[in-house]
Design a protein around this nucleic acid. Sequence first.
DNA 1: CCATTAATAGGCG
DNA 2: CGCCTATTAATGG
Length: 213
Amino acid sequence: MHSELKCISRSPLFANLPQRVKERLLTISSHREFYPRGALIQQPLADADGMVIIDEGSAKVYNVAEDGREKIIYILNSGDIEGQQHLFKHIKNYNFIQSLEDSWVCSIKYADFQGLLQHSPALSLSILNNFGNQLIEIERNSVRRDLLDAKNRIMAYFGDLQQLLGKTKFLLPIKKKELASMLGITPETLSRQLHVLIQEKRIKVTGREIQLL
DNA sequence: CCATTAATAGGCG
DNA sequence: CGCCTATTAATGG
């Protein structure tokens, strides 16, 4: 058991699977490819018929509009997987995935993975739960975008981080430009609303460090 | 270091 | 609030 097994075990999605299933996963996954900061891990229409797992590092999943503006769909961190939706349907239009820092990435071919799914109820359940969680997150973001103004979207995001990290003081995991893209606002609006929030004594900002008051 | 990118500021619709 | 432009700050090679 070297880094290959860790690569899969590290992901919450696979961590609690029986040992033999993990071992099978190993045989169908490619192991720890290195992507330097800024490298494209996947791009649309590329022949990428696999799921990716971020072993170490982080990446952004995004699309670009005609005018070149990019919209971040979500951020992947260590242990996160992307692309499992294509397990059930082959869609040609993939998103861009770009590493945000030097990262190590594993991948699994759909066909292989599907075969394994049929033999492991535990793995199937694991995938279902992952789908559920992802759906909840997407719905929540969607509601926020529709119902909250920029300032409250920002605070809602900070609230998430607070809950996730258990701290009221934390570093933003991404650049403010990218945060703006995630929240569906412009960097200028983010900058301005942060100032408003500071003046309202609701937060304190030092570079990427956020302190909730 | 310098060059590029990110962040902020101000004006306007 | 988004878009545009100007200026400054941060980054990374």
